[in-house]
């Protein structure tokens, strides 16, 4: 009798732990652009310290879903989001949420590297400065160095921190943008096709970086490259026509997916 209770308690605890390991939870998420519905009741949870890849053909809603996670859709006039998205259990669409604060916690890296037309140093220091994360110049120097170190860019740029960020190569610019994103100590990093404008070497460097960042951050990445999704992620979600078709362990997804549409898409067959 006592044993039973103990087992039941343990099970409840496990369940609780499981719930806690979801950094973000999306429930019945739908997105409308004016009359047009782009997402249909998507239920997708993002696990803590995990790389989740979103894949699917163009226009399937994967980027739309990604952008709901830090309310980037707010900037689009006729865009409407329904359903519930939580970050550590808090509804991010709640009116009391400060969107600037939210985006510091859920950072974003875009398809095209978009450094500010400022020095490398200022590219990194801008975020920490507006969020008041550094108390002194030495503090700020430390944040800039640590961010660039983490992004694997420090050795390449340490002697030219005052040069313009736009003068770097494409791959370096993208790693600069990642360094900029992590400078404000986010909890989640969203990446929208971060390597599609990069050559294979720069891509490999960014992928290596994603792999390392995983221990400290939760990462959601949209990618058109199936191989990239297979290489960097632990969980993969497949979107099609605005619906979440399948979410699975990446290893299973690319060897033996459950859904026929996933199968056809990843194998490059006619649907």
């Amino acid at each position: 009798m006592n044993m039973m209770t103990e087992a039941a308690v343990e099970k409840a605890l496990d369940q609780r732990m499981n719930d806690l390991s979801y950094k973000m939870i999306g429930k019945d998420v739908s997105v409308y652009y004016g009359e047009k519905r782009a997402l249909f009741d998507v239920n997708l949870n993002v696990r803590q310290n995990t790389v989740t890849a979103l894949i699917g053909p163009s226009g399937c809603g994967k980027s739309t879903f990604l952008r709901t996670l830090n309310r980037m859709n707010d900037t689009i006039d006729n865009c409407r989001v329904t359903g519930r998205i939580t970050l550590d259990g808090d509804d991010i669409y709640d009116p009391s949420i400060d969107v600037v604060e939210l985006r510091a916690r859920v950072g974003m890296v875009f398809q095209k590297p978009n450094p500010f037309p400022k020095s490398i140093y200022e590219n990194i220091s801008y975020g920490p400065r507006i969020h008041g994360l550094a108390r002194s110049k030495a503090d700020m120097d430390q944040i800039v160095e640590a961010s660039l170190q983490r992004a694997g860019l420090w050795n390449e740029v340490k002697d030219r921190l005052q040069e313009s960020g736009t003068g770097l190569s494409g791959g370096q610019q993208q790693r600069l943008c990642i360094a900029r994103a992590i400078a404000v100590s986010p909890e989640v990093i969203l990446m929208d096709e971060p390597c599609s404008a990069l050559d294979p070497i720069a891509t490999a460097k960014v992928e290596e970086l994603i792999h390392e960042l995983r221990s400290n951050y939760t990462i959601v990445i949209v990618t058109h490259s199936m191989q990239q999704a297979a290489r960097v992620s632990q969980r993969t979600a497949m979107f099609h026509l605005g619906q979440l078709v399948e979410e699975n362990d990446t290893d299973k997804m690319f060897t033996n997916p459950d859904d026929q549409r996933t199968q056809d898409y990843i194998m490059g067959r006619f649907g």
């Binding site: 199936m226 191989q227 297979a230 690319f254 060897t255 033996n256 997916p257 199968q263 990843i266 194998m267």
Partner: peptide, 9 residues
Amino acid sequence: RQPMAADLR
């Protein structure tokens, strides 16, 4: 081709 799923198998 970097085959996936059934193709790879």
